[in-house]
Structure formats: structure tokens, C-alpha cells
């Protein structure tokens, strides 16, 4: 069961960040561990499989719509995908919705430190939350930008990685 590549590919599509940028946070493997501890593996296999077939499908429909069709609007997979987005952006695992837990939830499948309750994944994960760079700043309390930088005109230049290729 090596889902890391699948996880990065799907995460890149869900967040609009490049795989290298997600790897560059250094916490992707932690997120996958949280995910595979809390979410039943059959559901994860289905989720990654769905994304692989979306990519493979040579459809005229835009990929974004295919993701909405096949994943986000799927009662089983949608909440999982949304939790993946929230983990990347906010570094927090949110408890799965009540109705989802009734239907699909399973007891913890790995490290008991990860339970399906709301928690900050780790200190490093907080610092690597994507929301901060997306909003043009830095995580509050970390990645200090330096004296006086708050007086600069906010930059429209987001990472050149996201504007090229």
C-alpha cells in the first residue's frame, strides 16, 4: 500500500499547488498517515482510484468538473476529499461529518494518537499550512518575514511556480 504518489497527485488537483510545492512543505507524509489512520483503506483506495481514472479519461469535460462529478459530489468520497483540502490549507484534521461517520466510519486503523476528532496535525504542519502563502503572508508566529516588511506593498507576485507551466 504505497499511496504517497496518489496522495500528492490528488492533493495537487484539490489545492491547485504543484506536487513539488506540496512536497516542499515536508509534511505530506504526515497528512497521509493521519488520513490512512482514520479513513478506512477501502475508501481511500476508491478515492485514489477515482482520481486515477479521471486523469486517464481523455474527456472533453474539464478535469475540475470531473472531480466535482466523481469525487466531491460523492457522499462517500466528497467529505474525505474536503478534509484533505482542509489539512493542506489549515493543518487541521476536522472530525468527519456525523452522517458519514454513521455510514462509513471505522475504528482507528493505526497510531492511536490520531483519532477522528478535531486536532492540529503537528507543530510543523501548522507552519506549513498553505493558507498563509495563499493569502500573501506567512504563518502567524513562524517564517518571520523580517523587520519592516509589513510596510511593503502587498505583492501580486505569488510563487512563480504557480504562474508558469
Amino acid at each position: 500500500m504505497d499511496w504517497l504518489d496518489d496522495f500528492y497527485q490528488l492533493s495537487a488537483a484539490l489545492t491547485d499547488y504543484k506536487v513539488a510545492q506540496l512536497q516542499g512543505t515536508g509534511v505530506g507524509e504526515d497528512y497521509l498517515e493521519v488520513l490512512s489512520t482514520i479513513i478506512p483503506h477501502a475508501i481511500l483506495a476508491e478515492l485514489f482510484g477515482s482520481y486515477r481514472s479521471i486523469v486517464a479519461e481523455n474527456s472533453a469535460t474539464p478535469t475540475e468538473q470531473l472531480i466535482r462529478d466523481g469525487i466531491l459530489s460523492n457522499a462517500k468520497l466528497g467529505p474525505v476529499a474536503r478534509n484533505i483540502i482542509k489539512m493542506w490549507y489549515l493543518s487541521i484534521w476536522y472530525q468527519m461529518p456525523e452522517d458519514w461517520r454513521q455510514l462509513y466510519g471505522k475504528p482507528n486503523q493505526g497510531d492511536p494518537k490520531y483519532q477522528d476528532v478535531q486536532f492540529v496535525v503537528s507543530r510543523n504542519a501548522y507552519i506549513q499550512g498553505l493558507v498563509w502563502q495563499t493569502l500573501g503572508s506567512h504563518p502567524m508566529g513562524a517564517k518571520q518575514p523580517g523587520y519592516g516588511t509589513w510596510g511593503d506593498k502587498p505583492s501580486d507576485r505569488s510563487s512563480i511556480v504557480s504562474t508558469t507551466s
Binding site: D16, E64, L72, S162
Partner: peptide
């Protein structure tokens, strides 16, 4: 119900 580029652009 935002994700991907829409979500990113909204926040940005």
C-alpha cells in the same frame, strides 16, 4: 463548495 484554483484565487 470551492476547491482547486477557485479556492486558491478566492483566498488570494
Amino acid at each position: 463548495n470551492l476547491f482547486g484554483a477557485q479556492l486558491k484565487q478566492t483566498i488570494a
